Amino acid sequence: MAVSLHHIVVDAHDLPGLADFWCRVLDWRILSQKPREVVIGPDEFAPTGICFMPVSDRKTVKNRLHFDLAPDDQEAEVERLLALGARRVDIGQGDRVGWVVLADPEGNEFCVLRPKTSLISFRDAPS
C-alpha cells in the first residue's frame, strides 16, 4: 500500500493571518481558503502543503513538531522573518547551537538553521 504526506496541519486562531505569514516566509501562496481551513503551498501541483485549521484553545507549551528553515544567509533571514512578525524565543537551546529559534505570530516555534557549509565546520569545532 502506497502512502504520501498530503498536508501538515497547523492549529490557528487567525487562519488567514497565519497563512499569510507563512506564505511570505516560504514564498508560497494560498491554494484554498474556506471558513474552516486555509491551505498554502508552492503551487497547486505540489505534493505537500500546510493546512491551517481553527482551534479555540491557546497554545501553552512548546511545539512537539516544528519547521526547520534552511536559508543561504542565516542572519539576513532571521532579520527578514523578524520584520515579517516573527519573534525570538528561548526554549532552552543555549548559546552554542547552529540555529536560531523564532516563533510565528501565534507562538509556534520554528528554527532558522545555519547554511549547510557552516554546519559542517560548527560540528567540528571543539566544545
Results as ranks from 00 to 15, higher is better:
residue 27 D to R: 11
residue 23 C to R: 12
residue 42 P to L: 07
residue 52 F to M: 04
residue 27 D to V: 06
residue 45 F to H: 14
residue 49 G to L: 02
residue 47 P to D: 11
residue 27 D to E: 13
residue 50 I to Y: 06
residue 37 E to D: 09
residue 33 Q to P: 02
residue 29 R to H: 08
residue 37 E to C: 10
residue 26 L to P: 00
residue 40 I to Q: 03
residue 50 I to H: 06
residue 41 G to V: 02
residue 29 R to Y: 03
residue 45 F to D: 11
residue 21 F to R: 04
residue 40 I to P: 00
residue 21 F to D: 01
residue 41 G to Q: 04
residue 50 I to A: 07
residue 23 C to M: 08
residue 51 C to E: 10
residue 23 C to D: 06
residue 31 L to M: 08
residue 43 D to S: 14
residue 31 L to C: 06
residue 42 P to E: 08
residue 46 A to C: 04
residue 26 L to E: 00
residue 46 A to W: 01
residue 26 L to M: 11
residue 51 C to K: 14
residue 47 P to H: 13
residue 43 D to W: 07
residue 43 D to A: 13
residue 47 P to F: 11
residue 46 A to P: 00
residue 29 R to Q: 13
residue 43 D to C: 10
residue 32 S to N: 11
residue 33 Q to C: 13
residue 27 D to G: 10
residue 37 E to N: 12
residue 24 R to C: 05
residue 30 I to N: 04
residue 36 R to P: 00
residue 23 C to A: 14
residue 42 P to M: 07
residue 29 R to I: 01
residue 24 R to L: 06
residue 23 C to F: 09
residue 34 K to V: 05
residue 26 L to Q: 03
residue 45 F to A: 15
residue 40 I to M: 04
residue 50 I to V: 12
residue 43 D to K: 08
residue 29 R to G: 11
residue 37 E to S: 15
residue 48 T to L: 07
residue 45 F to N: 13
residue 33 Q to R: 15
residue 49 G to C: 04
residue 46 A to D: 01
residue 36 R to M: 11
residue 30 I to V: 15
residue 51 C to D: 05
residue 42 P to K: 10
residue 47 P to L: 12
residue 51 C to H: 08
residue 22 W to R: 05
residue 43 D to T: 10
residue 41 G to C: 03
residue 33 Q to V: 10
residue 25 V to I: 07
residue 51 C to N: 10
residue 47 P to G: 14
residue 21 F to E: 03
residue 26 L to H: 02
residue 50 I to S: 05
residue 27 D to K: 12
residue 22 W to Y: 12
residue 39 V to S: 07
residue 38 V to H: 08
residue 36 R to Q: 13
residue 32 S to K: 15
residue 46 A to Y: 02
residue 23 C to S: 14
residue 30 I to A: 09
residue 42 P to S: 13
residue 43 D to H: 15
residue 36 R to D: 14
residue 22 W to D: 00
residue 46 A to E: 01
residue 28 W to Y: 14
residue 43 D to N: 14
residue 47 P to M: 09
residue 24 R to E: 08
residue 31 L to G: 09
residue 25 V to W: 06
residue 51 C to I: 03
residue 34 K to R: 15
residue 21 F to W: 07
residue 39 V to F: 14
residue 51 C to R: 14
residue 36 R to W: 11
residue 33 Q to E: 15
residue 27 D to Q: 13
residue 22 W to G: 01
residue 39 V to R: 12
residue 26 L to C: 05
residue 48 T to Q: 06
residue 52 F to D: 03
residue 48 T to H: 06
residue 48 T to P: 00
residue 28 W to N: 01
residue 40 I to E: 01
residue 49 G to M: 04
residue 32 S to P: 00
residue 25 V to A: 11
residue 28 W to H: 10
residue 49 G to H: 05
residue 34 K to H: 14
residue 21 F to A: 06
residue 41 G to N: 01
residue 27 D to Y: 03
residue 33 Q to F: 11
residue 52 F to L: 07
residue 31 L to I: 12
residue 26 L to K: 03
residue 41 G to S: 01
residue 21 F to Q: 04
residue 51 C to M: 15
residue 30 I to W: 03
residue 32 S to G: 09
